[in-house]
């Protein structure tokens, strides 16, 4: 079976600073990959390269068998757009459209990009909001929602485009601790439904429970990867041990 994501020898520089220094990994259908590592290790940059929010310099990125980047070169813009259309992304700061209510936030992209019909769309919006437990918020403006609700709307919005892969960049880092649970539960539910996901997170307990594979990044490389039990209980690398030690103390 072709992997959902395959990355070979990925390098990325910002100016003279190399932030990704040769990354290789694969994501298979239904995988939930947790990406952990200290601040500045390149986790966000990696995720953003996968969906073309950053332009990488060297290597291959293959999404469902199609090259987003091959040997450091990208395809035509239309091709790139088609490939990244298979993925959705959820951001740390939600990035909801503040001038649109919840319904319009969810409808905008399907309406514009897929030209979906109005009636079907409303039904879909209602279903999707029910999925994330926010059916009653359909007419609310984003500014009236709590952080946890905003993030759940953002997840629903991403799901409206039927992505095959969902990328999460620290989806709970901007939330008050008591609100992280409701967002993590939604992600857990998606995992149960076999959604393919990559989640950059500092929630170790969550990573351990939900992920079937953990990538530990340090200084632009994947230093260690494997099953959650292996990474969390029996890390091989000293830096992994150190990182986890610091986390367990918090």
């Amino acid at each position: 079976m072709t992997p959902m994501i395959k990355v070979n020898n990925l390098h990325k520089k910002f100016g003279d600073v190399e932030v990704l220094k040769g990354i290789d990994f694969e994501v298979n259908k239904g995988d939930v990959i947790a990406v952990i590592g200290s601040s500045g290790s390149g986790k966000s940059t990696l995720l953003r390269c996968l969906i073309d929010l950053e332009t990488a310099d060297v290597g291959d990125i293959v999404i469902e068998g199609q090259y987003l980047m091959k040997n450091g070169t990208y395809g035509a813009p239309a091709e790139v757009r088609k490939i990244i259309g298979k993925m959705g992304m959820v951001f740390q700061h939600f990035n909801l459209f503040p001038h649109l209510n919840v319904r319009d936030n969810l409808e905008l992209a399907p309406k514009m990009v897929k030209k979906s019909k109005k009636m079907q769309l409303l039904k879909r919006v209602e279903e999707q909001l029910k999925e994330v437990g926010l059916a009653d918020k359909i007419d609310c403006m984003p500014s009236t929602l709590s952080g946890g609700e905003k993030q759940r709307v953002a997840i629903a919005r991403a799901l409206m485009m039927d992505p095959d892969i969902l990328l999460f960049d620290e989806p709970t880092s901007a939330l008050d601790p008591e609100l992280t649970g409701e967002v993590l539960n939604v992600i857990q539910k998606l995992a149960n439904n076999k959604m393919t996901m990559m989640v950059v997170t500092h929630e170790m307990a969550f990573a351990r429970k939900v992920a079937n594979k953990v990538l530990f990044m340090s200084d632009g490389v994947i230093l260690e990867e494997g099953l959650p039990e292996k990474i969390f209980e029996n890390p091989q690398n000293n830096r992994t041990k150190e990182f986890l030690c610091n986390y367990m103390q918090d």
């Binding site: 929010l53 990244i84 959705g88 992304m89 951001f91 700061h93 992209a109 514009m112």
Partner: peptide
């Protein structure tokens, strides 16, 4: 306008014109 707005429209598949008009 926060650059996150442009990133959100990009990952949702809106083109530049749609982003301009709607967001």
């Amino acid at each position: 306008i926060d650059k996150g707005q442009y990133e959100a429209t990009k990952v949702l598949g809106l083109n530049r014109f749609q982003t301009m008009i709607k967001v």
